[in-house]
Amino acid sequence: MSDSRLRLAVITGSVREGRFGPTVANWFVGEAERRDDLQVDPIDLADVPIGSAAPTMEPAAETLAALGGLTPRLDAADAFVVVTPEYNHSYPAALKNAIDWHNAQFHAKPVAFVSYGGLSGGLRAVEHLRLVFAELHAVTTRDTVSFHGVWERFDGDGRPKEADGPAAAAKTLLDQLTWWARALKDARTTSPYRA
C-alpha cells in the first residue's frame, strides 16, 4: 500500500546563536505531525552549512555536499512551511541563501509561513518572502501563524502559554496548505509545470 500523505518540509530559517526559531519550529512540527494527511520533514538551516556560501555557477565542494543533503529533501516536498523571524524588517540571510540555491524545487508548490518576533511578529519578513516565492513560481497561502512578543508567548517547555489561538491558526494554515498541495500535485501529475 502506498503512502498517500503529502510531504511537508518545515524550514527553520534563522541560524543565529541564541535564536528562538527551533522553539517555534518544534511546536509547529508537533501540530503538523498530529495530522494523518502529512509526512513532516523538519529542515533546520543551521544544520545545512551553506549560510555564507553565495550561489555561484560552480559551487565549492563543501557547498555541493551541503546541497546534496538539502536539495533532494526540498525536491521531494509537496509543500513548505517557512519558520522565520524578522531581521531589519526582512528575513534572515541564511534563508535567502538557501532559497537562492534552489529554484525548480519550489515550482508550482505551496508555501506557508510561521513568523515570530517583537511588535510585528515577523510579518514584514513574510511580506518580503511572498515576493521572492512568487518569482520562484510558488503559491503562498494567505493565512499565517504569527507570534508577536514571542519571548513571552512560550513556556519553559517550548509550548505556547495560551495554546488555543496558535493551535487554531496552525490548523487554518495547514488546511489551506494541504488543499493547495493536493491541487498542485494533481495538476503537476496531469500536466508538468513549465517555468
Score class of each variant (00 low, 15 high):
111 V>W: 01
139 V>E: 06
110 P>R: 05
148 H>Q: 14
41 D>R: 09
74 L>H: 01
35 R>D: 04
113 F>M: 01
115 S>C: 08
17 E>W: 07
141 T>G: 05
60 A>M: 08
86 E>I: 00
145 V>G: 05
171 K>P: 09
60 A>S: 11
163 A>E: 15
44 D>Y: 05
18 G>A: 08
30 G>E: 07
194 R>H: 08
62 E>L: 07
12 T>Q: 12
33 E>C: 09
31 E>P: 05
46 A>W: 04
24 V>N: 00
124 R>E: 00
5 R>N: 06
39 Q>P: 01
71 T>Y: 01
129 L>F: 14
92 P>K: 05
162 E>K: 14
178 T>M: 09
109 K>M: 02
106 F>C: 14
44 D>K: 01
34 R>E: 04
150 V>N: 11
26 N>L: 04
90 S>P: 10
89 H>A: 14
150 V>R: 07
109 K>H: 01
69 G>L: 04
75 D>V: 13
121 G>F: 00
95 L>D: 00
27 W>D: 06
146 S>N: 10
84 T>S: 10
139 V>D: 06
71 T>M: 05
132 V>K: 04
75 D>I: 11
195 A>E: 13
13 G>C: 10
24 V>L: 01
95 L>K: 00
116 Y>A: 05
129 L>C: 10
128 H>D: 05
33 E>M: 08
106 F>E: 11
171 K>W: 04
49 P>S: 08
36 D>V: 15
80 F>C: 03
158 G>H: 08
187 A>R: 15
78 D>K: 08
180 W>Y: 15
97 N>F: 03
184 L>P: 09
78 D>V: 05
134 A>E: 14
88 N>S: 13
56 T>Q: 05
87 Y>G: 06
3 D>A: 07
50 I>C: 03
156 G>Y: 07
52 S>G: 11
41 D>P: 06
148 H>K: 15
36 D>P: 15
75 D>Y: 11
12 T>C: 12
185 K>S: 06
58 E>P: 01
92 P>T: 05
102 H>K: 02
145 V>T: 03
70 L>K: 06
42 P>F: 03
10 V>N: 00
114 V>K: 06
41 D>W: 09
127 E>V: 10
109 K>W: 02
74 L>D: 00
90 S>C: 10
57 M>I: 12
179 W>Y: 14
45 L>Y: 01
58 E>W: 09
72 P>L: 13
128 H>N: 06
164 D>I: 11
188 R>H: 12
152 E>H: 15
74 L>W: 00
25 A>H: 02
171 K>G: 13
195 A>G: 15
57 M>R: 13
162 E>A: 15
63 T>V: 03
67 L>D: 00
131 L>K: 12
91 Y>P: 01
61 A>Y: 07
194 R>F: 06
100 D>F: 10
73 R>V: 11
168 A>R: 09
19 R>L: 08
68 G>C: 07
172 T>W: 14
35 R>T: 04
124 R>W: 03
71 T>W: 01
128 H>E: 04
134 A>F: 13
16 R>D: 05
74 L>R: 00
114 V>E: 05
91 Y>M: 02
103 N>A: 10
111 V>R: 02
29 V>Y: 13
3 D>W: 11
76 A>E: 14
143 D>F: 13
22 P>A: 02
64 L>Q: 10
170 A>C: 00
14 S>G: 05
